[in-house]
Simulated scan of single mutants.
Amino acid sequence: MKYLVMVQGTQADYEAMRGKASPGSPAWSEQEVQAMYAYMSAINDDLSETGEMIDGQGLAEPAHTRTVTLGDDGKAVITDGPYSETKELMAGYWLLECESLERVTEIADRITRCPQPEGAPNYPVVIRPVMEGAGDI
């Protein structure tokens, strides 16, 4: 079964990783950022080795977000982000092929243990099965 595993973050979190603290997001040191990248790289390497990894990417910060909606007049309404009302957005993902929900849950548990500075927010890791056909609904 395929699963999308998502990690979340905010614009403040990306800024904290560049050393700019804000309420609820302490500044990260260069060593803390490198430790996080090394941890995530080790997960990626392990998942590639087991053949479970289909794809995985970190996403650009929310400041580079663009939202396209349909306006009342039928024309596209294009808005660039981030927005003060926006909560967490997807910060990265893995598309995995795993034997079971239990296995992908083990992987998500490992992801939650990624090193970060004391006081940094802890976001859930979200697992979503990927529908592969109309019968999956």
Results as ranks from 00 to 15, higher is better:
V68H: 06
T67V: 10
L95E: 05
K87T: 08
A27H: 09
T69F: 00
G71L: 01
A21H: 12
T69A: 12
E99L: 12
A21I: 10
L47A: 02
Q11P: 00
M36E: 13
M17H: 01
D73H: 06
Q11E: 15
Y14S: 02
M90Y: 02
G92Y: 04
A27N: 08
A76K: 07
Y93F: 15
Y39T: 04
M90D: 01
P82W: 00
L96W: 01
E88R: 06
S29F: 09
V68M: 05
S29P: 06
K75N: 14
D46Y: 06
G51P: 04
L96Q: 03
H64S: 13
M53D: 03
W94V: 03
E49Y: 01
D109Q: 13
V68K: 02
D45W: 02
E106K: 10
C114I: 07
Q116H: 13
A76H: 11
N44E: 08
A63R: 14
Y14L: 02
S84F: 03
K20H: 15
D73L: 11
E30N: 11
T50Q: 04
T112R: 12
A35V: 10
E97R: 10
R113T: 03
C114S: 10
A27D: 10
Y83S: 06
N122I: 08
P26R: 09
C114K: 02
Q57D: 11
D72I: 09
L89M: 10
E118P: 02
M53V: 07
Y37E: 12
I43G: 02
G56I: 00
L95R: 06
Q11L: 00
R110V: 13
R113Q: 15
I107D: 06
P62G: 04
Y37S: 09
A16Y: 10
N122C: 05
D72L: 14
T65Y: 00
P115S: 12
E15D: 15
I43F: 06
S41W: 10
P82N: 03
L96A: 07
S48L: 08
G58K: 05
I78T: 14
A16M: 14
S48G: 14
E102G: 03
S100E: 08
W94M: 03
Q31F: 01
D73G: 12
